[in-house]
Design a protein around this nucleic acid. Sequence first.
DNA 1: TAATTTATTGACTAATGGGTCAATCTATCC
DNA 2: GGATAGATTGACCCATTAGTCAATAAATTA
Lengths: 216, 216
Amino acid sequence: MGRKSIADIRREEFATAAFEVLSVHGMQGTTLQRVADHTGASKASVLHYFSNKQTLIETALRQANATLRKEAVALMNLASTPWERFYGILEANFSPTTFRPEVAHGWISMCAEVPHNPQFQRIQTVIYRRLHSNLVSALKDTGMTEAEAEHGANAVSLLIDGIWLRCGLQIGGLNREDAAAHIEAVVNKLFGDLAERQAAKAKMSALAQALTLNAA
Amino acid sequence: MGRKSIADIRREEFATAAFEVLSVHGMQGTTLQRVADHTGASKASVLHYFSNKQTLIETALRQANATLRKEAVALMNLASTPWERFYGILEANFSPTTFRPEVAHGWISMCAEVPHNPQFQRIQTVIYRRLHSNLVSALKDTGMTEAEAEHGANAVSLLIDGIWLRCGLQIGGLNREDAAAHIEAVVNKLFGDLAERQAAKAKMSALAQALTLNAA
DNA sequence: TAATTTATTGACTAATGGGTCAATCTATCC
DNA sequence: GGATAGATTGACCCATTAGTCAATAAATTA
């Protein structure tokens, strides 16, 4: 495996800075100058590592998404039953480190650009597909039919999208607990009130908390 | 009632043009020049009616929302039972005239700006509150408890948001029928499979279609 | 018809922001 | 130590765009 060169590290720094700036200032407000200031470097230095603003932001989004994915994978590896995998997905989507208004705002900013930017479109598609197939796979393994699993996955992913949107808009001041409760209420209606599911939820919730505490 | 002056009509023209440009080109791409071109007028003329770009776009969004609202009110006036009101709300949110990728993109563009623009924040809040209170009111009148109605309204409004987002992103190529089906599947699980509800759905769906045919 | 208001526009300004470039500065390698 | 490669940056350049302004055209009114 190739080790990280100095240049790679620098690129990462600028990319993370870019995502933070994007989250706070939106797409219009994300200027090369601001990103540079945010790292203490100069605008020209940023452009030394990224040929243009486009690729910088693209890299920033991919990197941010990779972070999310790593967290999700870590959780999934600890899941041993289908329902635990299901709740692993949910917990990852509402992890305290990522489920924050600024981060949500960053993603919404990307969404607004999707129709004008094929690269963003691709990123968005990848994210969506992964979520969907993970959900379907987990639900199917609980014993549902393909169709049931599809319906369930659709419903849950739509809810997640809706909640992230609302989080970014800071409507009704919803926090992580509220978000999880909203979803759980629907999930209960959708899939019935199984004791096995409750246990899986409790386990993955605890694991997620342990992981974030560990990371901090 | 004050009649519309020539100036008012002109303002409306520019505002509708602005929303159309916004829907196609996003917030960044919505320049005064483009809006002017889209109406055949000059940039300076636009600024003659709107002191700045800010108020132009704000007016455009309010106007677009007012159009939606009128459609919703027309449907609601034809509803006579709580479930009919409920489906009136749904139908209005998926009306063929408004539930289009470009329009959805326009709204997402606004959402992305909400954190930087108190006016947009206000518009967004108004829209959300109206939807929520309409849903709660209809559901409560079907005999649910306050809490049940709240939960139901939350679930449905989150789904609607998620679907609009997905529509704007043109993910999975979902069309109106798919969107309605997604929602209906969840609604069936949430509220049970009542014959009365089915009838209400059929009626409001037919009325909505009649209204849009009439408008065309 | 003359006067006054209103509409429209081309030309201009100022600021912003992406991107280039040549000059330095630093570190590594022979 | 000297050379070479990469890092960093200030100074530019150019395109874009919001907003101004004064001049002209059109319409309304007295």
